[in-house]
Amino acid sequence: MGCYISKRSKKLPGYEDPTVLAAETPFTVSEVEALYELFKKLSSSIINDELIHKEEFQLALFRNSNKRNLFADRIFDLFDLKRNGVIEFGEFVRSLGVFHPNAPQADKISFAFRLYDLRHTGYIEREELKEMVLALLHESDLTISDDFVETIVDKTFSDADSKGDGRIDPEEWKDFVARNPALLKNMTLPYLKDITLAFPSFIMNSEAEDSE
């Protein structure tokens, strides 16, 4: 692919100026441009329209475009900031920014809370937690007795729901994560620090002077 095609494709709807995206996220302009290379790859795997469709997201995560997964669905929905069923470039960069090693911890905590608040009630409820545990067991082909699932959920809830009202609010979540930092491990992607090395071809397509 030559520079002409790359530059023409940048005019497609959904493309946003890397300098604007860099200003709003922990990424530099070069890193945003490198992310554009990744975005182009993901968004053209099934339909070449510079939009990541759910099936393309599933294909990238599972090597299978039909594999449904509760958590992948939640991530997709959170990335889809405009809630129009596809992930645009700007949404991709802004959402991945939360996973940058230098992103504020508070953003990671809030993202994880919204991820687990399946029904968007502003709370993580016991039923939601149980549903997620069952989804994980199903995904992993693990069989655990319902009694044991109840025990795990009860124990976690008694640790996290410090006010004892049967639901975890954002404040309780923050305290719980502070006591269990491993819960945020998957909210940081070390790859994002080296993104320009992973996708060096952006240098050929770069339009902007780097600010750093």
Binding site: L61, L115, E139, T156, N180, N186, L189
Partner: peptide, 25 residues
């Protein structure tokens, strides 16, 4: 005594939450 597994820790191992896969060639 083994520590009881934290439900959120269990959930966080989901393949669907491993976005690192997006960066694999």
């Amino acid at each position: 005594r083994p520590t009881m597994m934290n439900a959120f820790e269990l959930i966080s191992t989901s393949q669907g939450l491993n976005l690192g896969t997006l960066f694999e060639k």
